[in-house]
Design a protein around this nucleic acid. Structure first.
Lengths: 244, 244
DNA sequence: TGTAATAGTGTTTAATGTACACTATTTTAG
DNA sequence: CTAAAATAGTGTACATTAAACACTATTACA
């Protein structure tokens, strides 16, 4: 980390001119069975009027993750949810104002009444379906967002991450639908039932939900298992990367 | 990324007091069939005399990856090798001097005569076996290193990364040994032969190498396939995370 | 009462993983 | 010169998992 020839306590500010460090948070949620992401509309130069990933400068007295959580809470009012560092973007020209290094995070939130303040359509903050993003995102945010979606997909294959997007109680087919939304491909119903049950991640409840056809049983995620160990199972029905 | 309420071109330096940004590079190599990592011994406060991961401040005119490559070249004289961003560490108290945010990278180099300057034992730069690291690394470098090893392991399971550590020509059992070194577990010889051949990643050469027993055929990695697409295959012989 | 709609189960076959026994070709000890 | 040790490499059988898809179940509603 530290330059070996540098003196201990003094800095030559002109020599060690410092970049700005920001934290950007790509916030995902599921709205009406579709994966959405939160964007904010910029009010000033540069990229005035363009949509951007929410973020801000870090404070000197908070860790990166704390900064990301603060940002998340400022935008959505949500605390204590799943958050994970994605990547740090630091190319020279990515912000026309000055050198900016952005530590990007991914957050997953459950969409419910809590974040009404976001769903206000007249506001400069809005949820967009991942399949229908606005054009010309600010800065390199298109790249960041694409990377976030890609990471979300690949993590889904070996973690229990999808549960973060669902409410407390859900049906197995809703869970399957969530996987399909994120993976962007269809999964076999029978195989999904079998795998998810064998995994032992779910706790059956006595509750049912009625709809158009046969009522469905509701399940709950076993949280004890989650923290337990890095639980892993694979969902993809084709062997990844089969280069024939 | 950008604070939405901030003005466009001016900064209040006292308000937006900036952290320092460094790049640390965890450099791995294989020496005598064992995985090693490069560390430097600190000459000054803080952590004087302790070993640390090599790194330094970024320049304002280089990208993060450029900074990491520069650092790698300064320490080992090696260019154009495998390098990958690991994680960004930014806890508040990790450096007693000032707020420091470190973007950590992993690099893999082939150990050969090129980096003699590193193998000089009297120097303050030295290769350590991953299995026998020095005590009391500087800063939070123990944590960074542990994370780097863990990442290396998990990436090995689905990438062709091990080839970066081997010379141009190698035997299949050497490759197997490399996998075993990094994974920290034994692999079945027969299964390894079969899988690596089926994968079609290797190019047979006419060269053999003689040793104590039967001579071994040497192979070369097909580089055309590597860039091709994110080639994936799995090595672990147990299903990962099988929590029975 | 029967059809649409949704939920959920079972079964068959193919692919892959795992263990381990076997053969092959060299050096070296006696 | 020959047998044993050392290393390289192949083959095979069994278990496990994946994938496709046909089937049954339970509700609302026409």
């Amino acid at each position: 980390m530290e330059e070996r020839e540098e003196t201990a306590t003094t800095y030559d500010a002109s020599r060690y001119d410092r970049p700005s460090v920001t934290v950007d948070v790509v916030i995902f949620t599921l709205i009406e069975r579709e994966l959405h992401v939160l964007l904010v509309q910029r009010k000033r130069w540069p990229y005035e009027g363009h949509w951007a990933i929410p973020g801000g400068f870090i404070n000197m007295d908070e860790s990166l993750e704390q900064a990301a959580r603060r940002e998340l809470e400022e935008e959505t009012g949500v605390r204590d949810l799943y958050i994970e560092q994605l990547f740090t973007f630091g190319d020279v020209g990515r912000d026309p104002r000055t050198r900016v290094i952005s530590v990007a995070y991914i957050a997953l939130v459950r969409f419910d009444a809590q974040h009404l303040r976001v769903s206000d359509e007249s506001h400069d903050v809005r949820w967009f379906p991942v399949s229908a993003l606005p054009r010309d995102l600010a800065f390199d945010h298109e790249q960041i967002l694409a990377f976030a979606v890609s990471r979300l997909r690949s993590k889904l294959e070996y973690t229990t991450l999808a549960f973060q997007l669902l409410p407390e109680l859900f049906s197995i087919l809703e869970l399957k639908h969530t996987y399909e939304q994120i993976l962007g491909e269809e999964l076999d119903k029978g195989n999904f039932y079998r795998k998810i049950k064998e995994a032992g991640l779910l706790e059956e409840t006595t509750q049912m939900r009625e709809g158009r056809g046969r009522p469905t049983r509701l399940w709950r995620f076993k949280h004890d298992r989650a923290g337990d160990k890095q639980f892993v199972f694979r969902w993809r029905e084709d062997r990844a990367g089969n280069t024939k």
